[in-house]
Amino acid sequence: MQTMIKVRDLARTYQMGDIEIHALRGVSFDIHRGEFVAIIGPSGSGKSTLMNLIGCLDAPSEGSYELDGLPVELLDTELLAAMRNRKIGFVFQQFHLLARGTALANVALPLAYRGGISSNERMERAAAALERVGLGNRLDHRPHQLSGGQQQRVAIARALVNDPALLLADEPTGALDTATSAEILGLFSDLNRSGMTVVLVTHEPDVARATRRLLEIRDGRLMRDVPTSEAWASQPTPTQRRRRLPVRQQWRIAP
């Protein structure tokens, strides 16, 4: 299987005045083409820092990061911008659609920054991407005319339009209700089944459950790297948990 992401001893240190903050303290893992991975961890664990590094939005202090064969840690800001444009499709919690543009214009935006594609072709490709997320009949709608789920679908179409190596989603269901969240997660699963490498960053176990592999970050370190199916197997179900409570408390809860 082809390695899409190769992370070795990746570390990121921020300087806040005299204090050094070790947001990430050396993380190593590989993600192969076609995987569906969740990066989980509580806030402050360093998962956002890791996402920024994987997303080429930030440069590591130490370690190496190879995306689709390119050594990201060696690239300058211009090349990082080009990497984001060509290799990564971002999906954000807040959708981040341009309010004044139509769905089509929003989706076509990354193609404009790629350059060298005629306006007609851009529109065709954007329309195809919207079709793929089930919004083929909403091309000329503006964000305010769409529901939250539909807006997120537009954002996913935008992430897909440049045919990226990696779909990187940051809490993609954080602003959506449960039903819509399930729809969006289903869409990610569909995209993954069609061969897309998908990385979700989340703190919600329900979201992580939709993926097939779990990377758990805690205190800047990779704590667990397990298949999702095994991650919760050892955890007690609610009934088990109750049985494990001390006898005295159990007595109090269930009179």
Binding site: G55, E78, A81, A82, R84, F90, F92, Q94, Y113, R114
Partner: peptide, 16 residues
């Protein structure tokens, strides 16, 4: 600001 952030995330260079 957020629009600028988005454009940069989508591949806009500083010069753009």
């Amino acid at each position: 600001t957020r629009e600028i952030g988005l454009r940069k995330a989508l591949g806009a260079k500083e010069g753009d």
